[in-house]
Design a protein around this nucleic acid. Structure first.
Lengths: 188, 188
DNA sequence: CTAACCATGTAATCCGTTACATGATTAC
DNA sequence: GTAATCATGTAACGGATTACATGGTTAG
């Protein structure tokens, strides 16, 4: 049975940009596309093996350095990848643990709620700063990558920025309301 | 071994508001909290069983209607739930299939990219309209639920609204850029 | 009467995480 | 020399999805 997971497509996509090792793929996830995708080593290596078995990726021959397996996407792999790429993305059900907790917190003391929202805000605030730095660095890029790809990378970063900003906005809105309730409650 | 999943806490939380059946829990997920959480029947029923075995939920005695199991949270269950509730939410790694596809689409024709972003925009646009309706209905609520809980429900809906708006904003921004590239490209 | 909805469950599968294990290379 | 990083993998487990199976109740 062929693997049906998303990890394979993430791997094929990353290899479609440039050949690399499993370690490279992981690093790419942790840096360039960290705001849209995530992978573990424990999944990357087995999936790479099965992709190789299916002929969707190749192992590069010039193994100058031992212990390092440089994979590249095969023609067959590229075909399978493109087939997946042009299909509309499936709807993904939401699961926000933070919002789930928040929703059930009506019996917790106000200051606990305020603190939890503030913490959430700080997290997104830190993310936002990160993204803004990346955005800045993309502007000054000495383009080894094609100009077109920069547009896509930039749009991805913009996605991170807008998402963070929206989360921060929600926090501010919510804090304003709950602090207000707090004051009214303590005055009555 | 005790279950360690998130589903149990979602179930305990929902039962902490009101007793109900597995079916009720599913419906609650699909409506009230659909923009923050998601569950399947195939997971709800087994987890309910194991929660019962562990004494974290009770089966109501007045089984007027057969074939219907009304669960309620036990004192022990409430304790476990509260312990989880006050812990800060774990960081959740992002996995957006749409953004993953988008990121790798630099070799696809411009009109395909524009169409995929437009579709994404339409989806969020529809969601936004839904959320705005819910927001409106919360204003006119003949409050059987406590006034405080309404604030939490409202904040959750606001989260959905802001998230949708931010996604739509990203689409508009991206469409503007890519349509512009398109024009420049066709002129040169 | 029949379609939609209410209601509960099981089985198969698999997707992904976490922990464990190992060792080479590079930078300080 | 030692800490950090590069590099590859396996094993165990669990968490969640999907499909399957069954049947009662209600509304038109």
């Amino acid at each position: 049975m062929a693997v049906q997971n998303k990890t394979q497509f993430a791997i094929l996509g990353i290899l479609s940009i440039a050949p690399g090792t499993g370690y490279d793929i992981k690093r790419y996830c942790d840096t360039v596309i960290s705001n849209v995708w995530h992978e573990n080593f424990g999944h990357i290596y087995p999936v790479l093996s099965s992709l190789l078995k299916e002929g969707l990726v190749d192992l590069s021959e010039d193994q100058t350095i031992v212990r390092k397996k440089v994979y590249s996407i095969s023609e067959k792999g590229l075909e399978k990848f493109m087939d997946w790429l042009v299909m509309p993305a499936e709807y993904q059900p939401v699961r926000s643990e933070f919002m789930l907790k928040f929703l059930f917190s009506s019996n917790l003391p106000d200051d606990h709620i305020i603190k939890m929202v503030e913490d959430y805000r700080n997290r997104h605030s830190a993310k936002l700063i990160e993204f803004l730095k990346v955005e800045e660095s993309l502007k000054n890029i000495q383009t080894e990558i094609s100009e077109k790809r920069v547009h896509f990378l930039n749009a991805t970063v913009r996605y991170g920025i807008l998402t963070s900003e929206s989360a921060i906005l929600w926090c501010d809105e919510t804090l304003a309301i709950f602090k207000n309730i707090n004051i009214i409650g303590s005055k009555v």
